[in-house]
Design a protein around this nucleic acid. Structure first.
Length: 268
DNA sequence: CAAAGAACCTGGCGGC
DNA sequence: TGCCGCCAGGTTCTTT
């Protein structure tokens, strides 16, 4: 999402949305496509940012257009019309005043786009935990999150109300990097381990951003290019392969309903 | 109230 | 070839 945000900013900032085409009502539900279009058309995008896994397009009126890609959402920017094959999973088009357009594609149709008023915004973003890449996200904050909870540490990392923006891939990779077992009860994590976990989360996310995300299947960046972080996975989706650190076998279990990959000898 | 499980969707894969 | 079940970068609602 950070990669998408960085690439979308120069294409969208300062642009006026001249046209809105909703090809899948599910994307904007519970708003009707007509109501969504009416509220968005003519709006000026002043800036773009990200909060957790949400993309936010700030509009001159004070409204915010929020986009969540969920599992298979993709945003692309094009100056020329899409080829027929590229329209297969097209859900939304925002036509801009410079002739370009932003396209939202989504195979599984889990993605969401909605508008927030300035009044709604504060309460909405309040539901999310801190940004893991912020300076203020440190061992102390991590310890407060881990303390008095016995849920498996991986479930906590994925809980967006506790920390905003860590996904399944990055939770697995950060836990491997810090040598912590995904099922460890969070209250059993020491100060030293918490400090290591914070460093691992930050370094994993930074490295993934540098490699422009993970293209396991459908993900592409705004220019349609694959990310490369999947080439550096140490445990995620490597079950049965040997651990790059110890040579032992990478295991797969389910944690909180999510496929979870780890090295039983490196992660305790 | 926390936690587990199901639901929301589409499509690819392996097994039979 | 075709059908079935399982799995998938996430969140939210329901059930236990």
């Amino acid at each position: 999402v950070e990669t998408v945000k960085r690439q979308l900013e120069p294409a969208l900032a300062g642009r006026t949305i001249r046209g809105v085409k909703v090809l899948d009502p599910l994307l904007v539900a519970p708003l009707s496509p007509a109501a969504f279009r009416k509220r968005l058309r003519g709006q000026v995008v002043t800036s773009i940012d990200r909060r957790g896994k949400y993309l936010r397009l700030h509009l001159k009126t004070g409204m915010t257009l929020v986009i969540h890609l969920r599992m298979t959402g993709k945003l692309t920017y094009e100056e020329a019309p899409l080829k027929p094959a590229e329209r297969r999973h097209l859900r939304l088009v925002l036509m801009l005043d410079n002739g370009g357009a932003v396209y939202f594609h989504d195979q599984r149709r889990f993605g969401k786009a909605f508008l927030l008023t300035p009044e709604e915004s504060a309460a909405y973003w309040h539901k999310l935990g801190p940004e893991p890449l912020a300076r203020q996200f440190n061992r102390k904050v991590m310890m407060n999150i881990l303390r008095n909870r016995r849920r498996p540490v991986k479930s906590l990392l994925l809980d967006q109300s506790l920390i905003a923006g860590i996904g399944n891939i990055y939770a697995d990779e950060a836990l491997f990097d810090s040598g912590i077992h995904p099922l460890r009860p969070s209250e059993a994590i020491s100060e030293e381990e918490a400090a290591r976990l914070v460093r691992s989360i930050k370094s994993t996310l930074r490295r993934a951003i540098r490699l422009q995300g993970s293209s396991i299947d459908t993900y592409r960046n705004v220019r349609g290019e694959r990310g490369r972080f999947q080439e550096t996975f140490r445990v995620h989706r490597r079950q049965g392969h040997s651990c790059l650190a110890c040579g032992g076998g990478v295991a797969k279990i389910k944690v909180g309903g999510r496929g979870t990959y780890f090295c039983p000898s490196c992660q305790k």
